[in-house]
Design a protein around this nucleic acid. Structure first.
Lengths: 195, 195
DNA sequence: ATGGGATTTCAGAAATTTCTGAAAGTTCCG
DNA sequence: CGGAACTTTCAGAAATTTCTGAAATCCCAT
């Protein structure tokens, strides 16, 4: 591995962490390398910089593309394929989250949906099914929420994040507004809809 | 494995998924079993129901406790240890998320903090460091946000989730309120603080 | 303090995942 | 076409992770 120390540390760390995120060492290293690279790299660049086999790089690049974490581009007058990581960190995190949802959550939601259609054959199964229903409902709600938030304009979302728990204050404000509107009992400004 | 079909399907699925979440097959199966079980189980129960070795169960239980996913209890007049999964699904998801943050995010935040203190020795390193700073800032913001939300009273949080993207409407309402307050230029009701 | 039920440890076996080199495939140019 | 420049495939090697059985340890009741 032939890299400046700062970059090497970053790459190695991502290699280690790669396995904790559903990736693996090589994938983590490759992604880290592309992320900090000032220009797109081709497969041989990556092979050289990481000191791993060419075929491993080829497979890794396929997988990173499946994760939608890297983009492929061509340079005029050069037959090789160049890869780069999108620059926008928000965007990166959002695709990462989407992709993980697709791989980690959706299969379970389907499985649970099917299980909930079965007829329990015993008290034990009935209990199990009730527990599955609870889990299904929360997962479903959370993914719906996540998808909605992810569809919001990025700056709105950024603002909500920046507010943190102070959004709760908005809720209280809304409640006060509704309460007083109820007391006065006439048509007023309607700034927000009910949930 | 000797289980009612509905339960067996659930357990096997969690076994498969276990590896995608930072667990592993056995851990996933054990957790699934405890989750749907109507009563706490001891290690031998689990050994029998899942058909795996006693020692594997012992190690798995330790790990599930480290994840704070199961609780240990004792029954009077019985020396064995009984394990159960907390009933509240919200609570489960929240500890799961906390635990993942601790294992998947925090190490990277530390690594990045250290890297940002280094002095880049070349233009390439300077660029890499700038990219790391971007990543650090977003991760830091997201974890702060997550921690704050997780500290909110559960019903407030539940309400926010149920609102989904409609929270954005509250933001707009707030903006309108501030705008008109500014026009009128006198002290009015202050329902929400500025971000 | 001893016996025995219960749990833990751990070295090596088994299973799974990742990586490689060699061969095959693709594409473009002359 | 023929071949050079790249990329992909894939069977087996290497590395890693998970699982087991046997032995050790713990700890309570007598």
């Amino acid at each position: 591995m032939k890299l400046p120390p700062l970059v090497q540390g970053f790459v190695l760390h991502f290699g280690e962490m790669g396995s904790r995120w559903g990736l693996n060492r090589t994938l983590g290293q490759m992604y880290a390398l592309l992320y900090v690279s000032p220009r797109p790299l081709n497969a041989d660049d990556i092979t050289a910089k990481l000191g791993i086999s060419r075929s491993n790089v080829s497979m890794g690049l396929r997988e990173l593309q499946a994760w939608r974490l890297v983009r492929l581009e061509h340079h005029p007058g050069d037959r090789r394929e160049y890869f780069s990581a999108p620059q926008d960190v928000w965007h990166i995190f959002s695709t990462l989250a989407e992709e993980r949802q697709r791989r980690e959550i959706e299969p379970t939601l389907s499985m649970l949906r099917e299980a909930l259609l079965e007829t329990p054959g015993s008290a034990e199964e009935a209990h199990a099914q009730a527990r599955m229903r609870e889990m299904y409902e929360l997962m479903d709600q959370l993914t719906t929420w996540f998808n909605e938030m992810n569809r919001l304009p990025p700056d709105t979302l950024a603002r909500l994040i920046r507010m943190g728990s102070r959004v709760a204050k908005l809720l209280e404000a809304k409640d006060r507004l509704r309460a007083s509107a109820g007391r006065v009992r006439r048509r007023g400004r309607r700034d927000a809809e009910e949930t």
